[in-house]
Design a protein around this nucleic acid. Sequence first.
DNA 1: CGTCCTATTGAAATTCTTCAACACTCGTGG
DNA 2: CCACGAGTGTTGAAGAATTTCAATAGGACG
Lengths: 253, 253
Amino acid sequence: MIKTMARTPPVERLDIHNSELPVLCRACEARHRGVCGALAPDQLVKLSKHTSRHAYGSDEELVPAGEDVRRYSNILSGVVKLTRLMADGRQQIVGLQFAPDFLGRPFKSQTVASAEAATGVTVCSFPKSVIEEMVATTPELERKLHEQALKELDEARDWILTLGRKSAAEKVASFLFLIATHIDPEHKTEDGPVCFELPLKRADIADFLGLTIETVSRQITKLRKTGMIVVEHNRTVTVPDLRRLRDCCEIER
Amino acid sequence: MIKTMARTPPVERLDIHNSELPVLCRACEARHRGVCGALAPDQLVKLSKHTSRHAYGSDEELVPAGEDVRRYSNILSGVVKLTRLMADGRQQIVGLQFAPDFLGRPFKSQTVASAEAATGVTVCSFPKSVIEEMVATTPELERKLHEQALKELDEARDWILTLGRKSAAEKVASFLFLIATHIDPEHKTEDGPVCFELPLKRADIADFLGLTIETVSRQITKLRKTGMIVVEHNRTVTVPDLRRLRDCCEIER
DNA sequence: CGTCCTATTGAAATTCTTCAACACTCGTGG
DNA sequence: CCACGAGTGTTGAAGAATTTCAATAGGACG
């Protein structure tokens, strides 16, 4: 599970209104840091009437590409990959989303990318129409969605640099750094030691980095052998010194 | 040049109010298809009080990376490249913008990418503060900006696929196809013959595609020799059959 | 006419992919 | 309890794609 912002929930205000909130929303992360934070209690009540939770297993498709989408979602837990497919089967992950990100393309019923669960994923979903109605009357909601779009755009452009100009070694280091700094919402450090579960298998990492499985594997081995990371059970990664890993990414400016 | 929306300008309404419009805005493209389309005449008057036009030569910097930005702009003509630089000098273009795109990162004073003129560029610029004030009171303006952000996000993800999974030949074909379909706002065809000036020199194309100048040159030569394109004076490109070029991009889904 | 900038082309070097073999884990069922 | 297969990950060697280095050419401009 991952959070995108460090802000702590406004506890007192929450206590006051908690009884007015739908049961579903009371303990929900997205209520504070996600788009629902822009909604008033009565709006949440209205929304929750059409809301349902879903769980998906690894590699299950949440939103198929090219289909008419009628529902939007909030990611409650897990990691979602947005993937694009080419005619000959080549695949590329064009975005990763973590809780409590909003899932869906506002103002468009079709997306070229499909959304798949990378790990186990739970979402809270609601009809497009209800959200679009609320967007029209609640500027704060549009602001939230706008800000998420801008954040995703920033991230996409970061990734364009990585894909276009970095070597395989730097790509893998950049990926690990990305996960290390995104996987734990509280632990927003950029240095020191970190330990986490890789949310993606090698094939997904390869599709994210524009590499092959084998190259990813070799680069991970290299990072292991230089002590940059420690890997257990293929998925559990420990980074003894995050700053040293960061240096492998060659990011700057 | 690119359109953000398919909607045709409301001609009658324009005639009625034309005399109320600032002189600068009357003939402006951004007035209809850009963000200014969301503004009422009195807002345009207010904005135009703080507005100024600027012209930039090729490779001039419009917005430096990492600096505090106090002004936003509309691109009136020309092509702007958003570039990111790595510590060792490697460079990547993370986005291309055409008239009448909006230039600036709402809600943030710093950007990691710098904006440079790829061709000669003219912009209409205004203080950040004025726009942010108007955004707060004019939902249509935020909507426009939101939609542009989403459009740019879609384009960035298209490009992630190109960078991550396409061969050099497909990348160059994709770039030419992109330019061919974006350079002329009126001529929105996806097939038939097209002729245009390349807005980027080889070094820029390389930085956009994550390749070297030499590879770009070789791939262009290959496309020339197969009759896919005709090139004059290094910059003037004719595509006899746009659909055939599109097939070289291997896009799908 | 020389210089700078841009673009092209060739040959060698490097990086990454492809193909192939193998190892590990986890369930299932004999 | 072990064999089996599927899914996942690692490693090696050969091959292909792209980069690097180097040389050349053309145009614009003083």
